[in-house]
């Protein structure tokens, strides 16, 4: 436990010792803020026009701040994360492999598991800080409007699970190579594939289509954004996270039998 904590602390500090965490968090917030502003501005313009023109109000249907601002916000944040998380995870193992520090780390009395969990959770901590900073948007909405709080809470639970899944896949990619650019590219490519794979579900046959839409990250994310917590979705994310952490552990262990 103590060793895990030491590795966690070291990794967490090292995110902030270099500009990495600051740059990633800043760019993330700029993008998230931009999307939030856009959907909010659009919503308020339409609402304003609707008050003037009852016919228009009838045409656009239900004007609802949860549906028009909160839901797109979470959708947008999840896509930005898709781009940003590989940048947070790429260094975790690649850098140590490149600089050779992995040789010292793995000859200290530590288990692969302690190293992996220390690194995974340090990245999770940076990620949590990152999404916690977006809480300012829902707070503004609550201050000036009446959004439902339920979908906001489930949205954050969903973001947490999606982020953890992204990070576990990112760490896996980082354990494969000593080149950070390759690690980021592999992570981004695989994540995008998992994100969009359900698009081809309708083209594949019945069974294959079901499988494709089940393994897609998007399919399980939509419920959370709507305010629905389905245990199936939670189980899906937990399996996804454990699978990639497990694979990373195997990669670390493979140095034992690989020539």
């Amino acid at each position: 436990m103590r060793i895990f904590y030491l590795i966690f602390k070291k990794e967490f500090k090292s995110y902030f010792a270099s500009p990495v965490a600051y740059v990633v968090i800043t760019m993330f917030l700029i993008l998230a803020g931009y999307f939030f502003y856009n959907s909010l501005a659009l919503f308020s313009t339409i609402s304003f026009q609707a008050t003037m023109n009852p016919m228009l109000a009838k045409q656009v249907g239900l004007l609802n701040i949860t549906e028009s601002v909160v839901r797109p916000l979470f959708g947008n944040i999840s896509v930005i994360l898709l781009l940003m998380v590989p940048l947070l995870t790429m260094r975790l193992f690649s850098e140590e492999k490149k600089s050779g520090t992995i040789e010292l780390l793995l000859t200290y009395p530590v288990t692969d598991m302690q190293v992996l969990l220390g690194k995974f959770l340090s990245c999770m901590a940076v990620f949590v800080i990152m999404i916690a900073l977006t809480a300012i948007y829902p707070v503004l909405l609550i201050a000036f409007g009446q959004p439902e709080t339920g979908p906001i809470i489930t949205g954050y639970i969903g973001l947490f699970l999606v982020g953890a899944s992204f990070i576990s896949l990112g760490i896996f990619a980082s354990s494969l190579t000593e080149n950070q650019i390759i690690a980021a590219t592999v992570a981004f490519g695989l994540l995008l594939l998992f994100w969009m794979i359900s698009f081809s579900a309708s083209l594949a046959g019945q069974t294959m289509g079901d499988i494709l839409s089940y393994i897609s990250l998007t399919a399980h994310w939509e419920g959370f954004a709507k305010g629905v917590i389905d245990t199936e979705d939670i189980v899906y994310y937990l399996i996804f996270i454990s699978l990639f952490l497990f694979l990373t552990l195997r990669i670390l262990e493979s140095k034992k039998w690989r020539g």
Partner: peptide, 18 residues
């Protein structure tokens, strides 16, 4: 074994940001 050894690898890999 690892608890009982001190190891200095060849190119002295260290965490440069510490």
């Amino acid at each position: 074994v690892r608890r009982r050894i001190g190891y200095l690898p060849e190119n002295v890999p260290l965490y440069k940001d510490m």
